[in-house]
Amino acid sequence: MIDQIVLLLNDYTFQVVALGTGFLGLLSGVIGTFATLRKESLLGDALSHAALPGIGIAFLLIQRKELSLLLLGAMIAGLLATLIIQVMSRKTVVKLDSALSLVLSSFFGLGLVILTAIQNNPNARQAGLSNFIFGQASAMLRRDVQLIAVVGSVLLMLVVLFWKEFKVFTFDPMFARTLGFSSKITETLLSTMIVITIILGLESVGVILISALLIGPSVAARQWTDRLSLMMIIAGVIGFISGVMGTFISSLAARIPTGPTIVVVVSFFVFISLFFSPKRGILANHFAYKKRQRAFMKQIRSLEEGKG
């Protein structure tokens, strides 16, 4: 067993994939913190599903698996979906949640139709387009990891640079506008960063599960701290560990899919944090409540005794 693990850790493919999913988890954790705090968790889910037809159409156009072009297609589809959701919920009587689920399912449906149709094309089968649905991290190449690292570094730098603007816009967007910061610039920048993060994760985690990687780490991190900067760092660390651990577990045996394993690890962190965190955890709250109850009962009793 131990030999097997050592062998695995030294395996080049494993190292590449683990590093790639680790970076991806780190980035998702950091950027996802804004999505969680802006209460836009569902938007990420809709965007990732909406990316699928973009991949299919991009492949139809170029007829080979050129990852960067496929992801460009995914991004265009994702941004188009954002636009449709915004127009639907602003200009018409459709509520945001209806707009989200409508766009999510219709784009995803279209994506499935296109993907199924082009499966007859031997080229497409070979390209493994259906892997985008659940993700296939083992398909990750060194190049892909480099792409994640470079794009990810740029996004992280933007977070540091526009920290103050993102913070005030996430907390109080109305007030931020009265300060003279353009909401168009800030919102567009932030949404684009979220879309890019999702797109980067499509290949390894897949369109269905990537939003869990985006939201999970920050939800878990919120339980452990009351500071935005620390929350973001913890979310990044949880994301990174989840990526590496998920890849490791799924490599122990054949046919364990990586993307879903990563999401299971993230969920484990969320579960632990929700229940066991010292201040905000469900257990801590329960005990605090019991303690207050006991103190109150004691007070009542002493009052009654005083009377009697």
Binding site: L37, K39, K167, T170, F171, D172, M174, R222, T225, D226, R227, L228, M231
Partner: peptide, 9 residues
């Protein structure tokens, strides 16, 4: 109009 559970002092 804001979420007072936002992580800030």
């Amino acid at each position: 109009t804001v979420d007072w559970d936002f992580p800030a002092t």
